[in-house]
């Protein structure tokens, strides 16, 4: 057996985008029971790129929300390849408020290239929709756990990521913009995306070091799709452990420590 070459950040970007990776529907099937999907933002439309609903996690009712890209071309088109419109973020807000009303913990699964850049999305307030998600998540009085399972692209990913605990799969990435977008903005050359990926510090290990996330879920050697069962098992253990800690805290305490945590990001000596 030869020792595998160390994985580069660009390799992880490719793995994070692998269509065979487990998606939010797989996680729901394997970690939760009795899933009941809830649709629509009650204002404009249903956005299939964000899946939301209720389920039991080990007997406790929870709200599950996650991006989905779809597995067939037909699904990809219906789900806009995981690029959400304002309706998707507003549906997420509706389900979060509802979770708070019924005191249910919220678990989010993040996997999106970013919010959809389109005329209708702008006309209906893409910026406002994401901003309101951030504001709402920062103030929720129920436990929230976010798991970046694939691509954590920009504001569209952060909209589901302002949580008490943030975990990333080992080969997931989370970044200010896609490496292609980053290379376009800074070097006016999208073909330098691999170079961008190396410099952006977007891997799970980078984010752990930067103090942005709380932990890493390990994957099999060739990625989560190789043996998804091991990933479900690892994630299950983390969810059980963290929920038991978070559910013991009052709503006010949750809010306060979430703010304290956000407040600390970027304030380490390497940044400020």
């Amino acid at each position: 057996m030869t020792t595998p070459k160390p994985r580069t950040a660009a390799d992880r970007v490719a793995l994070a985008r692998n269509p065979l990776r487990p998606s939010v529907t797989d996680y729901i099937d394997h970690l939760f029971t009795g899933f009941f999907e809830l649709c629509g933002d009650r204002r404009q439309a249903e956005d299939a790129s964000i899946l939301g609903g209720l389920a039991f996690y080990k007997g406790t009712p929870v709200t599950v929300i996650g991006h989905r890209k779809g597995k067939t071309l037909e699904e990809n088109l219906r789900m806009n390849f995981g690029m959400s419109s304002p309706e998707g973020y507003r549906k997420a807000q509706r389900l979060m408020r509802q979770a708070e009303k019924f005191k249910r913990p919220i678990i989010t699964f993040i996997d999106t290239p970013g919010a959809y850049p389109g005329i209708e999305a702008e006309a209906r307030g893409q910026g406002e929709a994401i901003a309101s998600c951030l504001a709402l998540m920062s103030r929720l009085t129920v436990p929230t756990i976010a798991v970046v399972t694939g691509e954590g692209g920009s504001g569209g990913a952060l909209a589901l990521g302002v949580a008490d605990r943030i975990f990333m799969l080992e080969n997931a990435v989370f970044s200010v913009l896609s490496p292609e977008g980053f290379a376009t903005i800074l070097w006016k050359d999208a073909s330098r995306s691999q170079e961008a990926a190396e410099i952006m510090r977007l891997t799970a290990q980078d984010l752990l070091t930067l103090g942005v996330i709380d932990g890493i879920i390990h994957e099999p050697p060739n990625g989560a799709h190789e043996e998804p069962a091991s990933v479900y098992l690892a994630l299950d253990a983390v969810l059980t452990r963290e929920l038991s800690v978070l559910c013991a805290q009052s709503g006010d305490a949750l809010r306060k420590s979430r703010y304290k945590k956000l407040r600390a990001i970027g304030n380490r000596k390497e940044a400020l």
Binding site: L134, S154, L158, S175, V176, I185, R263, A271
Partner: peptide, 20 residues
Amino acid sequence: ARMQEGILSLFQMAKTAAAL
């Protein structure tokens, strides 16, 4: 968000929103 500071710039969005 400022590209040169990567993910830390992204999280300033959440931080400012939370303060407001």
